[in-house]
Design a protein around this nucleic acid. Sequence first.
RNA 1: GCGGGUGUAGCUCAGUUGGUUAGAGCGUCAGGUUGUGGCCCUGAAGGCCGUGAGUUCAAGUCUCAUCACUCGCCCCA
Length: 420
Amino acid sequence: MSRFSAPRGTQDILPSATPRWQFIESKIRETCRLYGFNEIRTPTFEETELFIKHTGESTDIVNKEMYTFTSRGGQSLTLRPEGTPGTVRAYLEHNLGANLPVAKLYYLSRIFRYERPQAGRYREHNQFGVEMIGSAEPLADAEVISLAWQLFKSLGLTDIELKLNSLGGPEDRPAYRQALREYAEPILEELCPTCKERYDKNPLRMLDCKVPTCRELLANAPGPVDFLCAVCKEHFETLQKYLDSLGINYTVDPRLVRGLDYYTRTVFEFQTPHLGAQNTICGGGRYDNMIEEMGGPPTPALGFGIGLERLLLTLEGHDIELPGVPKPQVFVAALGTAAKEVTVKLLAELREAGVATETDYTGRSLKAQMKLADKYDAKIVLIIGEDEVSQGVVTLRDMLSKEQRQIPIKQVLSTVKDLL
RNA sequence: GCGGGUGUAGCUCAGUUGGUUAGAGCGUCAGGUUGUGGCCCUGAAGGCCGUGAGUUCAAGUCUCAUCACUCGCCCCA
């Protein structure tokens, strides 16, 4: 064993597991194709400032979880701790809003956060995210939520719960914030230290507190829904109507606020009952101000992120059948120098014809090679020894029926293709 | 950042009150026919007992530290 090991909170995804990853990735790509979302790939790191400004200065992500380093040129760079700011940056940099009225983007990328690792929480994780930029219509919200729902459904997950809330727009926020502060002021001394801090910096997050006493004290606090302006209210109601007609179950959770600063109006989370503390499998919402704040024209947008490790853990907890490593269809067992010369060519011919073919590379006995073929679960074994070489034939064994016959080497390909 | 649990072969785990060469099952490799798989039998390889220090005549076993994993808090995907 090497004296090195993977850094804390990172993991090797081994060949035995990659087929499962490819499986969910292919489901993701297919779902995105159906919904008309196209893939975007942005850099692994960005200017640190991008996240500070747009993920938000009051977030934990920015305050204590970023992998920040200085480049040789003296620039401060950060491994992306979430996908949205980089995607929006690319959208603006390349003027992706110019061609079509709405940009529908998706990404599969690695995300980095310096956190304490736990089941379903890593320092490097894979995330599937979607961003829909350019529509303020509730239809856009419905489409984005529907996409996530459809993905879960196509993977066989039916017990995922959707939680929904509306935080209101920039017009409603000050009044609500004020009301919340007014409510909290008399009980401020009884709240936990973090909530006291939130009172000043970001009062909304007080609703999110898990401390029992805070929960109790804030139980009757006004929710953002109570302060929605007419437009926001209608937006939220229309979205719910759409979700109803889509048959998507949801619960409105007036305390759902999420930990990123940029959200406006719709926020949502999909939760699974099977992951313990890390039960949020998908989180997202609207961020109607970010694009303008980044220097673009006022442009409404929304999106979500899905943690693939969590998604996979959920699937594995459901006994959903997941693919294993691919199997060769044919195994070629060669004995002796002359046979190997024939084999090299035969292997290439079979593969060129689209037949997955395996062989032995360690000069084992025929018995050992048969065992290997069995382990690979090959349907057909082609045996080539001195006798076969001198007669210009190969021995073809059907591993299931155990039937065995000799066929001319020229006919191998057609015979094999018939049998598969 | 805080609190609890765990750490012995590739994998899953045993290792008695500290006491000689650290065990099992699975897996791997070889043999049981001269060119033939699954079952069975035999044998072999494979272990800085996570790492470092300490206590002791003696440490896988006790103490401390450290690292990693894991569960909860926090946060989030």
